[in-house]
Write a protein that binds this DNA or RNA. Structure first.
Lengths: 107, 107
DNA sequence: CATATATTCAACCTAATGGGTGAATATAAA
DNA sequence: TTTATATTCACCCATTAGGTTGAATATATG
């Protein structure tokens, strides 16, 4: 199955998409504006945006022929939570290991 | 180009690989042990491990015919830093926007 | 109405993923 | 030495990703 977290992390795994998100964190923009910095067809950028939408990292507001994209940071929370949890698990294990070595207790 | 952050996020985007990492955060394990919970060939798990190694999230210690895998949390820092930065950017923008609305200053 | 602009749709290509199987390799154990 | 175990290597397959180009659609503008 494809979970929301899967989609979020997959969306973040591409540098073009991260750059788009970083731009959008500063405020909404149209597709053409987002595409401008990249040496890539407008169509390709459009596809990247679609993947960001699939991950709910970006929302679209259509106004006439212009599509305004906005950043939605909500999905980042789950990604950050997962990472933080692994780091915590690891830190806990190291601490426990240290205790064992210092006190000589059984593991 | 394929940066380290790209590899890290791509590695984390798969649920099987996240489960493997979560297991390894509790301590090192052999390939067969890691594969055991999954309804999947040993070979497939072996491939997932290779991707985790490419992302430097896992290191391998060979002891005879056994390969012991360990979790390396270091690459998570960069991923977490990127996410935190976007969240901060967004929070800053919201704060600034709020100021403008409250004081009536020019944007 | 005619034309320019903004965006997507459709088809195509190549490379990478994620899965499988069977054989090869290396080490351990009987 | 023979056999069993642990792991990878070498293919095969279907799907997706990331890019292209060209046509279609919708809206502005002269």
């Amino acid at each position: 199955m494809q979970t929301a977290l899967d989609d979020t992390l997959a969306a973040l795994a591409d540098p073009t998409r991260r750059a788009i998100l970083a731009r959008l964190a500063a405020g909404e923009a149209r597709v053409t504006e987002l595409a401008q910095p990249f040496d890539m067809s407008l169509n390709s950028v459009s596809k990247h945006i679609r993947m960001l939408e699939r991950a709910s990292l970006v929302t679209r507001r259509v106004a006439g022929r212009d599509h305004f994209l906005s950043f939605n940071p909500a999905p980042l929370d789950a990604a950050q939570a997962w990472i933080t949890e692994q780091q915590a698990l690891w830190a806990w294990r190291l601490r426990r290991l240290d205790d064992v070595l210092n006190t000589g207790d059984a593991p």
